[in-house]
Structures are given as structure tokens and as C-alpha cells.
């Protein structure tokens, strides 16, 4: 069976695990632990290595979604996870502007590892204090070609939209390769 990979990344507590859980057909294989650091005690547990979900495409192909650990001290995993990926989703918590700088750093790092197509998912858009995506685009210094999408990671439809937009970007990239060759 052919396996393909997409990576879901973003700062600590951005909603990566929920994002994968929303569309995975298997229970997300998660390596969560209780948080030891007081600073990061916004939630009770965090992903310490990676988690992954699976979507079977057909009898011959499966798509794996790999979530990266959110805490900085596990960033050595990022390069390993980025190898051979189709594309990646950067999840950003729209209600926590203090994490935008970290999100941009993660984004740049992944682009350096593997310059594959990516989209930015502005998560928690259902919250009252969520930043608008236009404002987030400026704060994250995203150029207009980069898609930044409203997202609620708990919602399957919302996650589907994000993944589809990433796939459209991948398709556009393949067509661009065609044009270059022509």
C-alpha cells in the first residue's frame, strides 16, 4: 500500500491534535503526557513526540497526518517529520497573538526543511476574541499567495476544507511544474 504524508504543525496548544482527531479514521495515536512546566500549563497534557491519524484513500493508498510536538524543546523532531511530506498545515490559535511569532518561526523552519506547499489554518475562529484572518495575515507576514483559512479544529467540515485547500495548492504546484517543463 502506498502511504502519503501531510504534516500538521503549529505552536504549543494551537489545536494540532484536535485537528487530526477530527478527520482521522483511527483513534489518533497520540503520545501525550501531563505537562510539567508551569509556564506551559495552559492545558493538562501535550504531545511530546508526535501523533498521527490515518485516512484510507482506497485499497492502494493511505494518507497519514502527522502532528508535530508543540513545545520548543522537541523541535528536533520537525526535520524528521518533514521528510517526504506532500505539504503541511500550520495551525495558529487565533485568540493568542502572543504565539504568532512562534508560528512564523515554525513556518519558516518547515519551509527551509522542505519547501512544499502549505496553508495556514487560523484555529478557534468560533471564539469571540479570535483575530480576523486578514489581521493575522499581516501579523504573520504572509504574502497574498499563501492561503490563510478560517478553522475550527473540532469541526470535521472545517478541517476538511483546510485539507482540501492544501490539496488544491499541491495541484496548482504540480501544474506549475508542468508549465516550467513546457
Amino acid at each position: 500500500m502506498q502511504t502519503l504524508k501531510m504534516v500538521v504543525t503549529g505552536p504549543f496548544n494551537a489545536g494540532k491534535t484536535e485537528f487530526i482527531q477530527s478527520v482521522s479514521e483511527i483513534d489518533v495515536v497520540s503520545t501525550e503526557r501531563r505537562i510539567s512546566s508551569e509556564i506551559e500549563r495552559i492545558k493538562e497534557t501535550t504531545t511530546v513526540a508526535m501523533d498521527f491519524g490515518r485516512i484510507t484513500i482506497d485499497n492502494e493508498m493511505a494518507l497519514y497526518l502527522f502532528g508535530t510536538p508543540g513545545q520548543k524543546r522537541f523541535d528536533f523532531m520537525w526535520e524528521i517529520l518533514s521528510e517526504g511530506m506532500l505539504g503541511f498545515v500550520v495551525i495558529v490559535d487565533s485568540t493568542r497573538p502572543e504565539t504568532f511569532r512562534e508560528a512564523r518561526k515554525i513556518l519558516e523552519t518547515f519551509r527551509a526543511y522542505a519547501p512544499t506547499p502549505y496553508v495556514v489554518a487560523a484555529n478557534k475562529q468560533d471564539c469571540d476574541d479570535a483575530w480576523e484572518t486578514d489581521d493575522m495575515r499581516i501579523a504573520l507576514r504572509l504574502s497574498h499567495e499563501i492561503k490563510i483559512l478560517d478553522c475550527v479544529a473540532m469541526s470535521k467540515d472545517s478541517v476538511k476544507t483546510v485539507l482540501l485547500e492544501l490539496l488544491y495548492s499541491i495541484l496548482a504546484e504540480l501544474e506549475a511544474v508542468d508549465l516550467q517543463i513546457a
Partner: peptide, 17 residues
């Protein structure tokens, strides 16, 4: 093969939809 690559992406798109 580019066409094969695109077909592969279309299969994923159909499945996600």
C-alpha cells in the same frame, strides 16, 4: 509522471470530500 501525480492528488481530494 506528472499526470499520475495529479491523478493521485485528485484521488485524495475525492476521498476527503
Amino acid at each position: 509522471d506528472k499526470e499520475e501525480g495529479k491523478s493521485l492528488i485528485f484521488r485524495i481530494i475525492d476521498r476527503i470530500r
